[in-house]
């Protein structure tokens, strides 16, 4: 299974990748990841690749991802072509405008982005940033998104392995926040089981 995690530098894509890879390893499977580390971490576009199974390279071919986890709306749209036609997407409706958009040099067309993503039958939206903010830290939006993806049945790893990998890869001081973020994401997804979008 090929999972692509997309976001803006600073949103925590690498942590999501580490949790998925750690959970896959705990489950006894083969796993590789590929990260974006460098200048892009200063507010640029970042993607992480997680690949389970018998593959040789860490990087998902174009149009090859089975699942896209996007921490920001525009990055979800940007990376959608990397998703298989039959692939699933969980996209945070978080809106982070590039400075060039605030300066009026480029347009951030939220509705166009949403419509483009929503055209995929297996795309779902969740306000992960808002849910995390309600728990006290928007930084936990990545874990909210992950919890939702799990509750929607889109991850092949089991919950025990995912939560163990979450604990292994985060400082104990944030354990309670992260567990709450996981639960918030999972509950929001379960409450909207048949809907394409989590609201509220």
């Amino acid at each position: 299974m090929d999972i692509l995690i997309a976001g803006v530098g600073g949103q925590g894509t690498i942590l999501v990748s580490k949790i998925l890879a750690g959970a896959a390893l705990l489950g006894g499977g083969r796993v590789r990841t590929g990260e974006t580390i460098g200048m892009s971490q200063r507010g640029g576009c970042v993607v992480s690749h997680v690949r389970t199974g018998a593959v040789s390279s860490s990087y998902i071919p174009p149009g090859g991802a089975d699942l896209l986890l996007a921490l920001e709306l525009c990055e979800g749209a940007r990376n959608l072509p990397r998703l298989k036609a039959t692939g699933a997407a969980v996209v945070s409706t978080a809106r982070l405008e590039p400075v060039t958009a605030a300066l009026g040099q480029e347009a951030y067309e939220e509705e166009t982005m949403r419509a483009y993503i929503a055209a995929r039958p297996r795309a779902r939206f969740i306000p992960a940033d808002r849910a995390a903010r309600a728990l006290g830290s928007e930084k936990a939006a990545n874990i909210v998104l992950l919890g939702a993806a799990f509750a929607w049945g889109l991850l092949t790893m089991d919950e025990g392995s995912l939560l163990a990998a979450l604990a292994q890869n985060t400082p104990p001081a944030f354990a309670a926040l992260n567990r709450a973020a996981w639960r918030a994401g999972a509950e929001a997804a379960r409450n909207a089981a048949d809907d394409r979008e989590v609201t509220g």
Binding site: Q41, G44, C74, P98, T100, Y108, M113
Partner: peptide
């Protein structure tokens, strides 16, 4: 989509 270059 709007470009997103790294920024300060």
């Amino acid at each position: 989509w709007p470009r997103r270059s790294p920024v300060l």
